[in-house]
Design a protein around this nucleic acid. Structure first.
Length: 270
DNA sequence: CTAAGGACCTGTCGGC
DNA sequence: TGCCGACAGGTCCTTA
């Protein structure tokens, strides 16, 4: 899935298609997602102008010109594409037809993603669980340090904990730690204020690079025009077990932490 | 309370 | 070729 850069890229990709549009019809082919699509509310967002589209953590939020919003999460394998075609692909679960004749299609092989309509004012409960992403002002060094300074969890799993910092996924967690020379095994309580600063700086640099390049590439990621030409940013350690470390002579190791793969260099990261 | 493990679901790949 | 297990970008819920 999409980590933050892919979600941001998707949001930017679909934005022009949604500008000043309204949805004329919603076709639900499969509503069983991580949370079942609440299509009983679809009447509230059809024939209503789309007011705004934004990203919050790894969620894409569309606000309508009434009191409703819709949130989309891409899970591990979700994508959104704009299309004029009438032909559907396997796993095209929800289709939003637009006035323009385009449609916005939510496709998700593993169905870990979700689409939910909700009253803007009440907000959506899962969204509220997310801490700031590294680009938000709230995610400053003091905030981060204070959140982790007593923790006995590993820094790797802390980076994946979106209640603390949102937007960092399994690929970039390894990459960020490599670029700061910090071992993924270190506990939160052993991460200094200076280390926190480095981690936040590198998070922004690495995520930004990925956004600029248009999202990382993974097998299931399509950009909003469904062109397969997604790109690949240069990864230093993720997926590179046994290969030479870019900054020393030893080899990249792969370990499991909290049931997820972590890649790092035992020599250059401490 | 915290941190680790399991679950959700489908597809692909490597080994036997 | 075919079957089976391991693994995959996320994150919520349960267990210890």
């Amino acid at each position: 899935m999409p980590e933050l850069p892919e979600v941001e890229t998707t949001k930017r990709g679909i934005e022009p298609y949604l500008h000043n549009q309204s949805i004329t019809k919603i076709l639900v082919r499969q509503k069983s997602l991580r949370i079942p699509f609440n299509d009983n509310l679809k009447k509230h967002i059809t024939h209503v102008k789309i007011k705004n589209i934004k990203r919050r953590a790894k969620y894409i939020v569309i606000d309508f010109a009434n009191e409703y919003s819709m949130v989309i999460h891409l899970g591990m394998t979700g994508n959104l594409r704009a299309s004029r075609q009438k032909k559907f692909l396997k796993h095209d679960h929800i289709i939003f037809y637009l006035e323009s004749g385009n449609s916005l299609i939510f496709n998700d092989v593993r169905r870990f993603g979700l689409v939910q309509i909700y009253k803007t004012k009440g907000s959506f409960y899962l969204l509220d669980n997310n801490g700031p992403d590294p680009f938000e002002k709230k995610a400053d060094v003091d905030y981060f340090y204070n959140r982790i300074k007593n923790s006995s969890a590993s820094i790797k799993s802390i980076l994946l904990n979106h209640k603390i910092i949102s937007g960092i996924g399994n690929i970039y967690a390894s990459e960020i730690l490599f670029s700061t020379n910090i071992s993924p095994l270190r506990m939160g309580r052993d991460i200094s204020h200076t280390d926190c600063k480095k981690i936040l700086q590198q998070s922004k640099i690495i995520l930004n690079k990925a956004i600029k390049a248009g999202g990382t590439t993974l097998n299931d990621y399509f950009n909003a025009e469904s062109k397969p030409g997604y790109f690949k940013i240069q990864l230093n350690v993720y997926g590179k077990e046994g290969e030479k470390c870019p900054s020393c002579e030893s080899k990249i190791s792969k370990i499991t932490q909290s049931n997820r793969s972590t890649y790092f260099c035992k020599e250059s990261q401490n």
